[in-house]
Design a binder for these strands. Structure first.
Lengths: 101, 101
DNA sequence: AAGCATGTTTCACTTTCGGACAACTTTATA
DNA sequence: TATAAAGTTGTCCGAAAGTGAAACATGCTT
């Protein structure tokens, strides 16, 4: 049996990997975009769950793997309508959104 | 005691009001944007719940009442980051986003 | 080690629409 | 019915969402 190697990182691991030294400007700026980070991993996790590659997901949605990669890594913020498309068309799931007061 | 008049419409009522005759092009297109409709009422409900006017909400978030109006009526799609600000700063709640597979 | 699949990143670009502003209409209160 | 407060709508511009190709990195498989 093959050992399943997860690419999913914790927030801190993600930042270490992508934004260098703790306490730096770039790293701190990410703090404000925490929600984005979450959306990226959300898609990432769902995609892995479905056993799709970025390329396959991209094709279903009608975009490119490079764009999917950017979204998963929170380099681009995705529009809700686009996110919706990715989830419905690409992952065959559905997007839920709620406000907790 | 004052009668509380709710502005919240069902999806069909909303469409009747804003998109005319059933079966028309424009009306059908809205189907694709159903999520937006939901987001609008979500914010609307939460705002009423908190007893805020559009202007007050706008001020807390650092935007304009006209923009809030458009969001609530699903005329404009809101960015996730802005939605996040509205919920956190404006409504004192927090935003949840999930993918159901 | 070569070839293949997957994912990341860069660069240059186009298009879209989020969001501000002002003017307007509607609703509420005196 | 006047006056203000709340909500709506038209217009416009720049930021950034999204595109796409190509090069690069990494890990598998044979």
């Amino acid at each position: 049996m093959k050992t399943k190697k997860s690419n999913i990182l914790t927030l801190e691991q993600f930042k270490d990997k992508n934004y260098g030294q703790r306490g730096t400007k770039k790293r701190d700026e990410l703090e404000a975009g925490y929600e984005n980070f979450k959306i990226g991993s959300l898609i990432h996790e769902a995609r892995i769950e479905k056993g799709l590659t970025q390329g396959q997901l991209a094709e279903k949605v009608g975009t490119t793997k490079s764009y999917i990669s950017k979204i998963e890594n929170n380099i681009k913020e995705v529009r809700i309508s686009t996110l919706h498309k990715i989830v419905e068309l690409g992952l065959g799931g559905h997007l839920e959104l709620s406000i907790k007061l």
